[in-house]
Design a protein around this nucleic acid. Sequence first.
DNA 1: GGAGAAGCGG
DNA 2: CCGCTTCTCC
Lengths: 281, 281
Amino acid sequence: MPLESGGSNHASFLDQPNDHGVALKLATWNVNSLKVRLPHVLSWLSTSQCDVLCLQELKLEQAAFPQAEIEAAGYRAAWFGQKTYNGVAILTRLPLEPRDVVCGIPDYPDVQSRVIAATVGDMRVICAYFVNGESVESDKYQYKLAWLAGLHRYIERELQLHDGRVVLLGDFNIAPADLDVYDPAAWQDKVLCSKPERDAFDQLIALGLTDGFRHCHPDTVAYSWWDYRAAMFRRNLGLRIDHILYGHGLRALDAAIDTEPRRWERPSDHAPVWLTLDDQP
Amino acid sequence: MPLESGGSNHASFLDQPNDHGVALKLATWNVNSLKVRLPHVLSWLSTSQCDVLCLQELKLEQAAFPQAEIEAAGYRAAWFGQKTYNGVAILTRLPLEPRDVVCGIPDYPDVQSRVIAATVGDMRVICAYFVNGESVESDKYQYKLAWLAGLHRYIERELQLHDGRVVLLGDFNIAPADLDVYDPAAWQDKVLCSKPERDAFDQLIALGLTDGFRHCHPDTVAYSWWDYRAAMFRRNLGLRIDHILYGHGLRALDAAIDTEPRRWERPSDHAPVWLTLDDQP
DNA sequence: GGAGAAGCGG
DNA sequence: CCGCTTCTCC
């Protein structure tokens, strides 16, 4: 997969360096209700100083998005809401702003609000809340596989359109490898870990995307989600299912999963995952 | 209504004076879920120092009563629980204890846990959560009137059995007079204020009971309940529907409605009502 | 408006 | 376990 250099003639992300030097910090966080988690999000924004934060499971309708609070924190947002379930958003730190916002997967009809894309600086950011699938026996699992195929085609097009300067981030509801699972034997062939799901993940990678966290930490065991039940977080029994994949037109500097917010009062069951990108093409 | 002196040969409430001298302080409080309001109850017990506290709307089943916490506060309790709705309790400050506990109205079959009686010291305490009735057009209103008749017969018997040393207290769901209503015209003939309900209240009084609060404060406008909606408490738009009625064998010293707990975080919609009784027959 | 239930989704 | 919903009751 050669690095495309012909079409790309982009400027830097920002006119002036941010707190990460010339790097851009992106993050993804399934907040499991933005209404409940807004204080966490605002607090985390202020300390993490990330430039782009992608949220999933807003669980609020379009009109209920807390735009004023987000903007008061110095961010702009594009969001795709839905009552009760799903809902995704892209937050960008000023002077960055989401441009050319596209909700949903074009040509893939879906009543659920799972995908939002925007151009930020000169890269395409695609925030997705992947279908969970419930169990491999479930109808929802079939929907998941079909949805994954639809997303694959979408990402393929976006990579072409944006010369590999694409970041796909969100709650993938897929643990790509056994290293990403606290008990691989128990999870073998279970939803989130099944072969077809991992194949779909690998096919995204085969498009020329890199798993940011795994690239930076090839052997590190780290999880981004812990079931609320059975004190799974306290016992660190989790899965790494939230990911940041970046295209061949970009280069990663560092990545991590910030488990601190998972320790806060009334936490989301997910922790934010972040990645810094070098601004030298 | 002459004061019965022949049959009554009772000792004092307590062997030694309590914080109110020789008086006994009784209170009633509809807590609207004891599970949620337990901290309020414990806090109020510690400051009010009342000897007998009757609770309504526990909204918990018999086994879920927080006995340990109540006892740790220095109280004993008898309770009559029910899942979701109703539920009543009598709390007594040690060394007082509830004796001869009777749940429900004997000979008045009712699946709802609305009445509990106990002997405390040498008086009979009857704690009741009266039927609300919903509206005068409702079937529940007919149930209310029938229930009131059943209660009347019960109280009549208890007054005879205990030589007028009876206290009936609880959420009556009846505002006895227009003075007890923030907008009598609007509430005219409405449930809680209708003629048949007020007649039933007056018939209880006619048994030889005295409305403790009204006896001590003949002209005072004071409410014990304010609807959660429309900021009714802030605007002091309420009703006096929680009462302490005492028999002719007892004498009141003072009474009040403590509106402070209604200002606390996540309050009940009712405020505690208290009465002190002289221990000189 | 605030409590509880029951049911869905994760 | 935790969030959402709709429902009932007051």
